[in-house]
Amino acid sequence: MIVSGVAAEVVLQYMDTYSRLRFSACNPGFRQLEKSYPLHIKILSLQNKGFKIDGTIYRLGIYRVYKARTQIPYMEIDYNREGSVQYDTNCKIFDRYGINEPKKIYTGSLETDLRKLEKANKTLEKLRKVVKGNAALIKKKGELTKKIRIINEKVAISKSKFEEFILLKISGKKHNEQLMVKYTKPIQEAFKDLMDRIFGGRGHQIHVEHLEVLGGFENPLKTVKMQVEHLDVEYFAKMRDVEDFFSTESLPLETATCYLYGYKDHKILGNAKLLILEVAVVDSLSAFDIRKFSNHRLLFKCKDCYRSAYVVALVFRKMTQAAKRRYTFEVSTENGEWNDMVREFADEETNKNFFENFAFPVTFTIKTKAGADLKFSADQKDDSIIVIDLELIP
């Protein structure tokens, strides 16, 4: 069936992302057409050897099929019966997405295990020579017997012969499929090919509403560009693997989210209209340096950390420059931290009126040493979180 350009654009506009990419993978003619129109993704999560697009998980791993041996065939047969052994190079991708947790395979040192086995056998032999035993001795014999059995299984499986395949799993709420090829190239190259097949060769930048970059992701492509609204960078993610997705024409991010202690000044984060910082424990002024943040609008999520918001707020109050800045804090209702912040920032009369006539929301303005007005607002977001807003107005 031949469709006009207008009809194709309408079809692609109303086709969900999974179906669009699925048809593109199966039909070379449709793939060329599909890649010539903009791709819009609501949520894209990038991880080591895998990614998640609008609820559909694409992940690469290794599929190991054992060749059963006649002398001790039970482990290999059991593995194969259960769908063989599926694993990633470091299993992180399976742990992160939490679907079809792989059977943990043995990758330890055979020499180390053989030494442990010899030592355990000698100890057990000595214990067996004891004629009269007590409960503790019986328990120790049982523990050693179990340990020897486990080591024997490890040694046996490490000597087993097997074939390895590269496995692509595509799974979502309504679909679950597997594609498998012989392991003929490193999995890093296979991941690059997968990324290129889906994201590469497009005539337009990919539009992503929310981009999440998880620890362990390494960008194998340097040519794919994205237009992103919201960016979430996990603690161990590296910005050098993120920045390649952004062109110089990309608009500033609406929001950028990262961890306070993992933050490193970067133009992509610094140009965000709102920088959201997940805060661990900040217990002293020296632990926080406001100068590394160029953003005028920051949100500190401190709901699990007592006094962290209070310490950061003190730095804010001591600023000597009357630059327009706005900080928002999300703090727990349980630890009374918001109380401390009200007492610190309000003058004596405001404090008295506030605590005598307590009610949310509350707003007051005070003068600062920087010659600016400080607007303080507090309101209850829900039963567990109070939002405190500090705005410095020159």
Rank of each mutant, 00 (worst) to 15 (best):
K238R: 14
Y58G: 05
S36G: 15
I187W: 01
L285I: 07
Q47E: 11
N335F: 11
K225Y: 08
P73C: 06
E391H: 12
N219H: 01
E229S: 13
R202C: 05
I41D: 05
K126Q: 14
D244M: 07
V228R: 02
E82K: 13
R297M: 08
L253E: 14
K116R: 14
K159W: 06
V281I: 05
L314M: 14
Y97V: 04
G142P: 06
H175D: 09
F316S: 09
P73F: 04
T255P: 04
Q86F: 01
L299A: 11
K147L: 12
C26G: 06
E118I: 03
L285T: 10
V342M: 15
T320P: 00
D16A: 09
T107D: 04
F236E: 06
Q321W: 07
I151D: 04
Y58H: 07
F51G: 00
G270Y: 02
G262W: 04
A280V: 12
T333A: 12
R20S: 14
Y79G: 09
Y259V: 10
R149Y: 03
V279W: 05
T257E: 06
N27I: 07
R115W: 02
P28S: 08
L298H: 06
R291D: 11
N100I: 07
N176G: 03
P28I: 03
P220N: 03
V130A: 10
N100R: 12
K174T: 14
I385N: 09
D283S: 12
Y87D: 13
T107I: 11
A309E: 13
P252A: 11
H210F: 11
D283M: 00
Y106F: 15
R149M: 06
Q13E: 14
E254I: 15
E234I: 00
H207W: 03
G61Q: 08
Y310W: 12
E337W: 03
F246C: 02
T107L: 11
T56E: 13
E212T: 13
S377A: 10
D241F: 11
P73H: 07
A237T: 08
